[in-house]
């Protein structure tokens, strides 16, 4: 229960920062997605059903707060979580470069999803311009901010004592 509250706290903090501080910074497409890092971390560290519910809930809150298309963040968070936890079971997720690769790959996946789902719903629609620059900028932005954030989450967990941390 403590663990759920802790990650809910992280999620709340990240969403608040996402809609206030990060919305204020003039970063354009390079603006990182803080909740994305938490979902990634939960997928790597705790690929359980509890984690999936938590991730779905946080996506739902983000949808409530900021989404222009309700349900998009919930679905994306869930898909990301399952994707990361599936990959984590097949490679060593604690291996440091894994985080960077995971951030880069799933950033690209997230952007592609954001850009392509309207096209999937309506294949006749024209794809908006600037996809490549958006991919590069968002991936770089996520890498720059994401690695320290993942490290922070990891250290916070270790400080509490990973063994004593209840599994989600």
């Amino acid at each position: 229960m403590r663990s759920i509250l802790l990650y809910l706290g992280w999620g709340w903090l990240f969403i608040v920062l996402q809609v206030s501080l990060f919305a204020f910074l003039p970063l354009g497409e390079a603006r990182p997605d803080l909740l994305f890092f938490l979902v990634l971390y939960l997928g790597i560290e705790f690929g359980t059903l509890g984690g999936a519910i938590l991730v779905f809930f946080l996506g739902y809150v983000l949808d409530l707060v900021s989404s222009s298309f309700f349900g998009l963040n919930s679905l994306l968070a869930l898909l990301l979580f399952f994707g990361v936890s599936w990959v984590s079971r097949r490679v060593d997720p604690r291996h440091p470069p894994f985080w960077a690769v995971a951030i880069a790959v799933f950033s690209v996946g997230e952007i592609l999803f954001f850009w392509f789902w309207p096209w999937l719903l309506n294949p006749g629609a024209k794809l908006p311009a600037g996809l490549f620059s958006a991919l590069v900028l968002r991936t770089v932005g996520n890498l720059v901010v994401g690695l320290p954030v993942l490290k922070l989450l990891y250290l916070a967990d270790n400080r509490r004592g990973r063994e004593s941390a209840p599994q989600l």
Binding site: I53, F56, D63, F70, G71, L72, S74, L75, L78, L79
Partner: peptide, 10 residues
């Protein structure tokens, strides 16, 4: 969960 998310999304 996925079904729920899809229903919200759709």
């Amino acid at each position: 969960l996925l079904a729920w998310a899809f229903s919200l999304f759709s």
